[in-house]
Design a binder for these strands. Structure first.
Length: 483
RNA sequence: GACCCUAUCGUCUAGUCCGGUCAGGACACCGGCCUUUCACGCCGGCAACACGGGUUCGAAUCCCGUUGGGGUCACCA
């Protein structure tokens, strides 16, 4: 096993499946395949308040849609399971206790209030932020006694406060960081669950991961991870930090500024093989600079060393162009098959049909009446623009309302049904003290482009979350320009 | 703010390790050709080595500094 390449993607199931997950997964997948090794899917659901199974399901589906099939994972099993961190609690507890026993970690009884005050004080006096090691000096016997008495506590990593840690990143080479500025990271939370740092290191080791390929945002916590490997006496894997995908303004890619949900790309009709190809182009090039290539060609040619480090801007235009090339290469029959999986399935048509049924007089009317169920973004003509405004409010004011509705009530929805949508809209009305009458028409126009539609919630349910969100974003942009 | 990462056309990038081509390709944009139209396709154009110092006959490439961009600084991952 030691000479087999084993890689993993370790997403956290806390929302819609992210394009960044697919990006990192692709490189992990390809490296494992290139060397005849294994690609593992591990679900990092140690944040009990945010993790949920609906998100986990979506990750499975999205990764499979892209063809990034895993060799071991929660749903397929494997020799190093379980692959869901919430099912591995005893393992983390046991490992954390090992560190406490050797003095590499210690119990900390500080309250959240104390930590908040500490942080405020540090901020005020422009000191370095971080835990001050308050509980580190508690004698082990005393700490043990307090723990068994049931006192609330966490387990912290005892980071050396002198010297420096040298870590090696495959792409960047040596990175040196003073230990003094590395915090005593919490390893086990007061609820008994591990934090990312502990769980990740323990699992990567136990699962025999040889190459840790993940996003650049993890570089700063590398010293903590290295310290953990050392404390456990384990060999280090190869670390390779991929550049972060960016918005057009170079900030870390985010859903405010870009479509980031893999569900969006699927619903918008991008071909998985084209998306994958495009993702491979982010920071990487074929030796011959060819831009169109298959997943297997990518696997064949991949060398991590060819990855460039400037954060690549995710460019929808170029993705769309590439997707077009793939489309043109498909036979009409194949296009038909793909259309059938999206808009021309009996399943989808039978959802749309009942909504149009009573409102049409000839069969042909269906296509006119239900057009917005099949198009991408919708246009807002002058009449629509007028009704896009909430009563008594300006364009920008309505835009702000819609944005709050979208970000605080629509985006977080895990269940997308007429009931859950209605509930979200009504909760929104209550919180912002707007009436249903005021806001429902703007929402209706936003998601359909029309004032006359089937019932709003049913319509939105059938359109799907991604289509609604994309059209609402568009409407918000339009509203900002209306006085 | 501290620390870390990073820097070639608007965007994705080749070239950088082993200094020496008009700094190459792609998207977007602009022109033209093809075509009943549009699209595709083809041809052409616009467009970059962040800045300042060195080293050198010669620097995108090596060294130093500056600046810009990004990330991290949670009992989230």
């Amino acid at each position: 096993m030691s000479d087999t390449v084993r890689t993993r993607i370790a997403p956290s199931p806390t929302g819609d499946p992210h394009v960044g997950t697919a990006y990192v997964a692709l490189f992990n997948y390809a490296l494992a395949k290139k060397h005849g090794g294994q690609f593992i899917l591990r679900i990092e659901d140690t944040d009990r308040t945010r993790s949920n199974t609906a998100s986990e399901e979506m990750i499975f589906e999205a990764l499979r849609w892209l063809g990034l099939e895993w060799d071991e994972g929660p749903d397929v099993g494997g020799p190093s399971g379980p692959y869901r961190q919430s099912e591995r609690s005893e393992i983390y507890t046991e490992h954390a206790e090992r560190l406490v026993a050797t003095g590499d970690a210690y119990p900390c009884f500080c309250t959240r209030e104390r930590l908040t005050e500490l942080r405020a004080h540090q901020r005020e006096n422009k000191l370095a932020l971080g835990y001050d090691g308050h509980c580190r000096s508690i004698a082990p016997e005393e700490a043990a006694a307090r723990r068994s008495a049931g006192e609330d506590h966490v387990i912290r990593l005892a980071m050396p406060d002198e010297g420096e840690t040298t870590v090696i990143d495959l792409l960047r080479g040596e990175i040196r960081i003073d230990n003094a500025q590395v915090d005593d990271q919490v390893l086990v939370k007061s609820d008994g669950f591990p934090t990312y740092h502990l769980a990740n290191v323990v699992d990567d080791h136990l699962m025999g991961i040889t190459h840790v390929i993940r996003a650049e945002e993890w570089i700063s916590s590398l010293p903590k991870h290295v310290r953990l490997y050392e404390a456990f006496g384990w060999d280090l894997p190869v670390f390779c930090h991929l550049p972060l995908l960016r918005n057009a303004d170079k900030s870390k890619i985010s859903k405010r500024k870009n479509p980031v949900s893999l569900n969006h790309f699927r619903r918008a009709g991008f071909l998985p093989e084209a998306l994958l190809n495009y993702l491979a182009l982010m920071g990487w090039t074929m030796p011959d600079e060819r831009e169109e290539f298959t997943r297997d060609e990518f696997i064949d040619q991949l060398t991590l060393e060819r990855i460039s480090l400037g954060g690549p801007v995710f460019d929808l235009d170029k993705l769309t162009w590439l997707n077009g090339k793939y489309m043109r290469d498909l036979e009409p029959q194949e296009i038909l098959e793909r259309l059938k999986t999206l808009w021309l399935s009996d399943e989808y048509l039978l959802k749309v049909l009942p909504l149009a049924h009573e409102r049409i007089e000839t069969l042909q009317d269906f296509f006119e009446y239900a057009a917005f169920f099949f198009t991408g973004d919708v246009d807002y003509d002058d009449a629509a623009r007028k009704k896009l405004l909430a009563k008594g409010r300006t364009g920008p004011q309505t835009a702000k309302l819609l944005r709050q509705l979208l970000e605080d009530f629509i985006d977080p929805l895990l269940q997308w049904t007429a009931e859950s949508i209605e509930d979200a809209l009504r909760r929104f009305c209550e919180k912002y003290e707007v009436t249903a009458k005021e806001i429902f028409m703007p929402v209706r126009i936003a998601v359909t482009g029309r004032a006359a539609t089937p019932p709003l919630f049913d319509t939105m349910a059938v359109l799907g979350k991604e289509v609604c969100r994309s059209r609402m974003r568009r409407a918000i942009e339009v509203l900002r320009t209306i006085k």
